[in-house]
Amino acid sequence: MTRAGGFASTVVKLSRTLGNALVSENVARQPGLMQSLDPRVRVIGALSLVLAVTLSHKLLAIFSVFVAAALLALLSRVSAGLLTTRVWLPVLLFTGVIAFPALFVTPGATVLAISSAGFRITAQGLHSAALLICRVETAATLTALLVLATPWMHILKALRWFRLPQEVVMMLAMTHRYVFLLAETAGQMFESRQSRTVGVLDRATQRRVTARTAGVLLSKSIELSGEVFLAMQSRGFRGDARVLVDFRLRARDYLGLAAFLSLAILSVWMGRV
């Protein structure tokens, strides 16, 4: 049992969230291939490729998209180190743990038998686990690439252009903004509690403190929503949100869109059963 128990790990999680967001903003500002494209093209491109790898049933087809995504990331100033720590390694660990037993429990032709332990790895299990890991890694890389290379407000503008209801776009924008504000508030609450804690807190007390902190955060959230509403009213909000869409498609964007869609179609065609 630590001095303040789970508070420290919660503070670390909250700080990491804020840190990750700052990294995303920095990458999105740098010049790169993905950043040079119209946000709508980036959204369409990433989503079409994610859909394509989901539709694709062949390992080679999915792996081709993964390689293309990794190349695009490098050309967009998204470092391999960043992708490894934020995407590839966590996904490999998470999905790997899930996929690993499939090697043994999936019925099929035996590839390797571990007679001493009574286990046998099947070809079907191997294929299924590889397909799952490769597909999840590729989809996660594409999503991360889109988010890292595109400011959140541009993604929302693009979604609005795709006729996503304006209320939803407004909620997404507000939630994104207040996640960071409330994360900072929650982090400070936990830190201040930790700094005032002398000795060891038992687990029941930790639970009580965590629940109360969540309660205070809830009250603050509701209060904040009232203030936001008043601010909206004071600015003349009448329930009609206007999003400035000043995106313009250039030749480079059409070329990028064609490349994304071609790769997606090719992947689905290559990956058909």
């Binding site: 997404l172 996640v179 409330l182 965590t210 509701i222 929503s225 509403f229 909206m232």
Partner: peptide, 24 residues
């Protein structure tokens, strides 16, 4: 509309953060 939009948005932010609270 007007009042519900910020209420749902801020509550969404709260739910997001509660998922990060480590509970012993």
């Amino acid at each position: 509309s007007a009042r519900m939009v910020p209420l749902i948005a801020v509550f969404a932010a709260f739910s997001f953060l509660v998922m990060m609270f480590n509970l012993p």
